[in-house]
Design a protein around this nucleic acid. Structure first.
Lengths: 337, 337
DNA sequence: CTGTTAGCGCCTTCAC
DNA sequence: GTGAAGGCGCTAACAG
C-alpha cells in the first residue's frame, strides 16, 4: 500500500500527524469508543500496528480519573516472616492476580510494616490505586476500621466480626476450629493442644471454635501453645515443647506450616503419627499432601476466596454497599490423624 | 493558630487557593525541590497535613515521564501450576517487593500466559512500568531475546547462557547439579535418577551439571524422569514410577517440592530414606527442613538474588550496560541423604 | 463522521 | 523568592 517508514511514534499526536487526521480520531480508532468510519478506524489501527504504537495507559488513566490498579497489601504487623514463606499467600496472590487481570486491572503488590496509625490513609491518599485488598487484619483492626469509615473500595481477607467496621471475606474460622475438635474427639483423643498465635484474629477464632466444640471435661485441659507461624519459629517451639516432656495425643495447628513443624518435631522425639498422636493443620496448602504422613487439615477455599474478594471490591467500587462474606471450611482427612 | 475548616482538597490548585499562594509554590513546598522560603515551605506543608492532602503520584509520574513502578512478570509457559504453589516464588517476590520499596518504586505483579511472540513488547509499549523483571525464562527465550535487543531495562531471573541476548541473574544451575552428583557419589549411590522438566532452561542445566559430574560408568545409567514440578504432578509421577518397580538408591529433584513428592512416594512404597535411598532437592525453601526426614538440598540465595535483580535493573535504567550475574549454589546436607 | 478545545494533576522553565 | 504559563499523553464534550 503505502511505504511509510516506521519512524518514532510516541503519542497519538505523532500518529495523527502521520495519518493526516486529528488526535481525537486516533483516540477513537484505538480505544474503539465513539463513532468512527470503519475505514478510517481500520486505517489508523493498521498504522498504529505498523509503528508499534500503543496508547499510554498511565496518561489514559489520568485522564479517566482512575489508575487501573488495585493494591494488594500484606501488613506485617507481628508475623514478619510469615508472608515470605507461607504457601497460602502465594496461592492467594496468584488467584488475585488472575481475577484482577480478567477485569483489566493491574495488581500493585506492597508489603507494609505498619507504622503509627495512618500508614493506610497515607497510602490511599497518594492515589496510586483505585482500591485496596488487604491480606489479614494482622494487629491493625483499629486502623482498618478508621479507614473503612471514609473509604469504600477496601476489602480485607480475614476474620469477620461484629466489632469490625471494615468489610471482610474469609473462612469461618470458628467453624473450622470446631471441625478439628470434633474430629479429634471422634478419634478418641483427649490430651489436646493448640499451636498458634492468638494475637492474630483468624488464629484466635480457630482456637475459640476448637475449644468451644470440645466436651466440657476436655475444655479445661486443652493447652494453648503460643508460636509464630513461620517454619523456623514453629519448629523451634514444637521441638522445645516435646523436649520438655509433653506427650499429647491430639494437636491442632493454626496452619499447615505449623502442623508440619509439629509432625517433624514429634517424629524426632520418637513419636509416631498417627499411632501415638493425631495432628491436624489448617489451610490445605498443596504441599499438605506431601507431608509424611499426609496431613489431615481444615481446608480453606483459596481460589473461591480470592474471587469473592475481587467481586466484592468491584461491587463496592461501583457504589454498591456490599457486605462481608463468610466461606465454609471443609475437613480433609488424610493420614496424620 | 488559624481555624480553617478541613474542606475537600483534591489538588495543589485547591491548596494554593486556600493558602493564598500559586500552584508552583505548593509544588515546591511539597516536593522539596526548588528554592523556597523556609517559612512558606513549612506553612504549606502544615496546611497540606491539616487537610490530609498528598500529591497525586500518578499525575506526578506522568509529568516526570515515568511510572514509578516496576513489573514483575511470571510467564506461565508450560508450568501452569508452578507459580501458584511453589514457595520459592513467594520468597523471591517478597524480597523483590522489599528491594523495590526501598527505592521508592511500586511492584506491579502480573502472571502472563505467553501468547504468540509479542506479548512482552505489547506489555512494554503500554508504558505501564519503567522496567521489567521476569521470573524464569519458561519457554520464552526467543521472545526475551527479541525484546532485549531494543529494550534495556529488563532483567530475567533464570539460566545464563551464551546463547542469551537477554540479561540474567541466577544460580549457577550446572554447578548446583554437580554438587548433587558429587554428594550422591560420595554416599556410594549408583542407581540414580533425575526428576524434573528439562524443557525449562534452569532445570535442563541442573540435569546437565548433574550428569557431567558423574563418573563415566554412571553417566550412562542415570535415568531422566520427566515431571512438571507442581506438587500434584510430581507426586503422581513419583508414585507411578515406584509402583512400576523402580528401586533407585539416589534421586536428584529439580526442586524441593519435587523432592518432597519423591520422599512421600518412596515412603509409601515401603522404602526408607536415607536407608534405602538418598534424595536431594533444589532451592532450600524454608519448608525443606520440615520434611520428614529433613531434606538435603542445593540452596539458592533467594534474598541475594532478588537484590541483585533490582540492582542490575536500576543500573540499566540509569543507562549503564550492566551484564548478567551468576550466583554460586551451596549444598545443605540434612537427613534425606 | 471528524476536528477543535479544554482539561486530568502535576512540574518546571521563564519572567518578575 | 514567587507567579504565570506550557505541556506530559490522553479523552470527551462541543462544534461543524
Amino acid at each position: 500500500m503505502d511505504d511509510t517508514k516506521p519512524e518514532q511514534v510516541k503519542s497519538i499526536a505523532d500518529l495523527a500527524r502521520i495519518g493526516g487526521v486529528s488526535v481525537s480520531t486516533v483516540s477513537r480508532a484505538l480505544t474503539g469508543k465513539g463513532a468512527l468510519n470503519k475505514g478510517t478506524r481500520e486505517r489508523i489501527q493498521a498504522l498504529a500496528d505498523r509503528h508499534g504504537f500503543k496508547l499510554n495507559v498511565a496518561a489514559q488513566n489520568l485522564r479517566l480519573g482512575r489508575t487501573g490498579a488495585i493494591a494488594v497489601l500484606l501488613p506485617l504487623g507481628h508475623e514478619r516472616g510469615q508472608h515470605l514463606s507461607d504457601p497460602f499467600f502465594m496461592a492467594m496472590l496468584g488467584f488475585l492476580a488472575d481475577a484482577l487481570t480478567d477485569r483489566g486491572y493491574d495488581l500493585l503488590l506492597s508489603r507494609v510494616l505498619p507504622q503509627g496509625d495512618d500508614w493506610l490513609d497515607t497510602f490511599i491518599r497518594t492515589g496510586r490505586t483505585d482500591g485496596v485488598i488487604i491480606i489479614g487484619q494482622s494487629n491493625q483492626s483499629a486502623v482498618l476500621d478508621r479507614t473503612a469509615a471514609h473509604y469504600a473500595p477496601m476489602v480485607i481477607w480475614g476474620e469477620q466480626s461484629s466489632r469490625n467496621a471494615h468489610v471482610t471475606v474469609g473462612t469461618d474460622n470458628q467453624a473450622g476450629g470446631a471441625l478439628a475438635a470434633q474430629h479429634l474427639v471422634a478419634r478418641g483423643r483427649r490430651r489436646l493442644a493448640f499451636f498458634g498465635n492468638v494475637a492474630v484474629p483468624e488464629f484466635a477464632a480457630r482456637y475459640q471454635g476448637f475449644v468451644a466444640a470440645l466436651p466440657a471435661d476436655l475444655r479445661d485441659t486443652v493447652e494453648l501453645v503460643h508460636t509464630h507461624i513461620t517454619p523456623e519459629a514453629s519448629l523451634e517451639v514444637a521441638t522445645a515443647w516435646f523436649a520438655a516432656g509433653n506427650r499429647p495425643d491430639g494437636l491442632f495447628a493454626a496452619s499447615d506450616v505449623v502442623a508440619m513443624s509439629l509432625l517433624s518435631a514429634a517424629t524426632d522425639h520418637g513419636l509416631s503419627v498417627p499411632g501415638d498422636l493425631s495432628i491436624i493443620g489448617f489451610d490445605d496448602i498443596p504441599m499438605a499432601r506431601l507431608a509424611n504422613p499426609p496431613l489431615t487439615t481444615v481446608a480453606q477455599d483459596i481460589e473461591g476466596g480470592a474471587r469473592q474478594l475481587v467481586d466484592l471490591l468491584f461491587r463496592r467500587l461501583a457504589g454498591e454497599d456490599a457486605g462481608s462474606i463468610s466461606i465454609a471450611p471443609r475437613l480433609v482427612i488424610r493420614e496424620s490423624s
